[in-house]
Every structure is written in structure tokens, then in C-alpha cells.
């Protein structure tokens, strides 16, 4: 009895990803029990559409966490790219899909700027991206004076609002991003270098790895993923708003950490970020369905998120205590 339990705990600790997926599954079942509306098709679809965005940014963020850095400007890059795409389509009369392509490239450029600043001037990523976040947010305000850009051509709506079969299209994009990121991190040389840098930057440099080049590249990739999330959100709302992505920096970090990506770098699986995002989304969804007062929602979801983050350390603490008792 004790033995099997021990084994169970051991597997849990070995693979945070399996454990966290299991937890997600249990949460979904419980949610289905406590609220009959939870498993409703419409509810599930909107939940998945929500989590697609946080998940996508979380996957991007986990790339940075793997090299021991983070980007707090993800939300502002997303909304600025959304605004720019909107202005191109609405005010500039550019073909909607061409505008989206341009916005993606602009996202890449913004990420590149972040990366170059941080590597060339040797800035701390957190402080630098807080600063850049204000810059992108500021440009956004200058361009829009705080007003939303409406009359987005309907031809792009389906990207955000549509479904293929029962599955929301943004979620398919998120899965696509995940597959690409997983290929990059798990299968390629560059991916191995990413883990190496996160493990020991000095050793990586002595091995001849172009540490700074890879860091800049990751910032650029992250910028582009942000732009993708931003324009999909514009398509979902049918208008470009400067408030898009306000919560994404924190949510993406929380998702990645819940999913087992270490803040200190070097370990974890980007897929964990998507599972982490799903956990957060299920929690917020259930809280709404249970009719928790609007004023309490944020506090309650916060508490549950902190609990979820502490999961992996909790399991270690529990097994250590058990060992002491047994010994």
C-alpha cells in the first residue's frame, strides 16, 4: 500500500507535465459535477477560445523562461500589433490578410528590439521589458488616442470567432504554435542550445554556443507569437482595442510555471504552459458559473492559482515528510 503510494508520488515528481495534466482532468470532472453548465458545448467552446490566447502567450513565455528570462511586454506588443493591423485595413485600405501578415512581421521586429536591447546593453530582461511595455503602450495611445478601431473587415472575423467542427479556430492556431515550438525545443539543435543556456550560460558560451544570438532569436519569435495572438483577438472582437492583452504578461508566466517550467531556467516543457493556461481558464470559468460576486472573482481565482503553482513543491514536501515518518 505504502509502496504503491510512494511510487505514485515518484512518478508525479518525475514528470510534472503528466501530473499537471492529470490534475486538469480531475478539475474538469469536478467542474462538471459542481456546475451543470460547465460541460455545455457553448461554455466549453468559449472557455477553449479564452484559453487559446493565454495558452499561446504562455507557450511563448516558456521559451524565454527556459533561457532564464521573461518578457513583460507581451501584452502591449499584442495590442499594438492588433491596432497597427486594424489601422492598415481600416484607414490604409490595405488588403486585410496582407495587413495581418505585416502585423506579424512588426511583432517580430518589436521582439527583436527587446532582444537586442537586452543582449547588447546587458539589461535585466524583467526591468527592460517593463520599460518597453510602456513604450509600446505609449505608441498605442498616440496612434489611437485611446479609441478602438472599429469596422474591421468581416472577412477576417472567422479567424477569431469561427470553429472548425466543434473546435474554435484560435485554439487550432495555439496547437499549431505549440507543435512548432515543441519541434524547435525538443528536436532541433537550437532547442538543445536553449536548454543549455538556461542550465549554465557560462558553460554554453565555452561550448561555442552563440548565446546572445539565440536569446535575440527567442525574443523575436516571442514578439511574433504575441502579434499572432493580438490579431486573432482583434478578429474575435471585430475591433482593435488598446486594452487587449492587459493580463497576458502575468497570466502567461503563471501558466508556464503551473505547467512546470522553472523560473530559473533550464527545465520544463512548453506544452506545460498550455495545460497551465487550461487550469487557470477552468478555474475562472467555474468561479463565474458558480455566481461568485464580481468583486470576489479576482481574489478567489488568485488563491486557486497560487495553490496550483505550489503543487509541485507541495508534492515534494509531502513525500519528504512521509519519508521522515517512515524512517
Amino acid at each position: 500500500m505504502i509502496n504503491t503510494k510512494k511510487k505514485g508520488l515518484a512518478t508525479l515528481r518525475r514528470s510534472t507535465l503528466t501530473a499537471i495534466t492529470l490534475i486538469l482532468f480531475v478539475m474538469v470532472v469536478i467542474a462538471g459535477f459542481i456546475s451543470p453548465y460547465f460541460l455545455d458545448m457553448y461554455n466549453l467552446q468559449s472557455l477553449i477560445r479564452d484559453l487559446a490566447f493565454v495558452g499561446m502567450i504562455g507557450i511563448a513565455q516558456s521559451l524565454l523562461l527556459l533561457v532564464g528570462e521573461l518578457d513583460l511586454s507581451v501584452g502591449k506588443i499584442a495590442s499594438l500589433c492588433g491596432i497597427l493591423a486594424g489601422m492598415l485595413m481600416v484607414n490604409g485600405g490595405v488588403d486585410p490578410f496582407l495587413s495581418l501578415g505585416i502585423a506579424l512581421i512588426l511583432g517580430l521586429v518589436f521582439g527583436l528590439i527587446n532582444g537586442l536591447l537586452i543582449t547588447k546593453l546587458r539589461l535585466n530582461s524583467m526591468v527592460a521589458t517593463i520599460g518597453m511595455s510602456s513604450v509600446y503602450g505609449g505608441i498605442n495611445l498616440v496612434l489611437t488616442k485611446g479609441k478602438a478601431i472599429t469596422q474591421i473587415p468581416e472577412s477576417i472575423y472567422s479567424l477569431g470567432k469561427g470553429n472548425i467542427g466543434p473546435i474554435p479556430i484560435p485554439f487550432l492556431f495555439t496547437l499549431g504554435v505549440l507543435l512548432l515550438v515543441l519541434f524547435l525545443t525538443k528536436k532541433t539543435k537550437t532547442g538543445r542550445y536553449i536548454y543549455a543556456i538556461g542550465n549554465n550560460r557560462e558553460a554554453a558560451s565555452i561550448l561555442g554556443i552563440k548565446v546572445d544570438k539565440i536569446r535575440v532569436m527567442i525574443y523575436a519569435i516571442v514578439g511574433m507569437i504575441c502579434a499572432l495572438a493580438g490579431i486573432l483577438y482583434v478578429a474575435r472582437l471585430g475591433s482593435s482595442q488598446s486594452t487587449i492583452g492587459e493580463k497576458w504578461p502575468m497570466m502567461s508566466i503563471a501558466s508556464a510555471v503551473i505547467g512546470g517550467v522553472a523560473l530559473t531556467g533550464g527545465t520544463g516543457n512548453p506544452a506545460g504552459a498550455l495545460v497551465g493556461a487550461a487550469i487557470i481558464s477552468v478555474i475562472s470559468n467555474v468561479i463565474v458559473l458558480l455566481g461568485v460576486s464580481v468583486y470576489w472573482q479576482s481574489a478567489v481565482s488568485g488563491i486557486v492559482i497560487v495553490l496550483a503553482i505550489s503543487f509541485s513543491s507541495l508534492s515534494t514536501i509531502i513525500s519528504e515528510k512521509k519519508q521522515k515518518k517512515l524512517g
Binding site: 539543435k189 538543445r192 536548454y195 542550465n199 558553460a203 565555452i206 554556443i209
Partner: peptide
Amino acid sequence: KMGILPMLSVRENITIPSLSKLT
């Protein structure tokens, strides 16, 4: 401090400089 990639496996530590050849 400058040699090992502590949290990676022995395999990953061994092959890290030769990945181009293995790709």
C-alpha cells in the same frame, strides 16, 4: 561553474558540441 549543464542528462551533455553532425 563553466563545464557541465547540471540539469541535463549525461547524453545531452555529451552530444551538445556535436549536434550539427547529428542533425
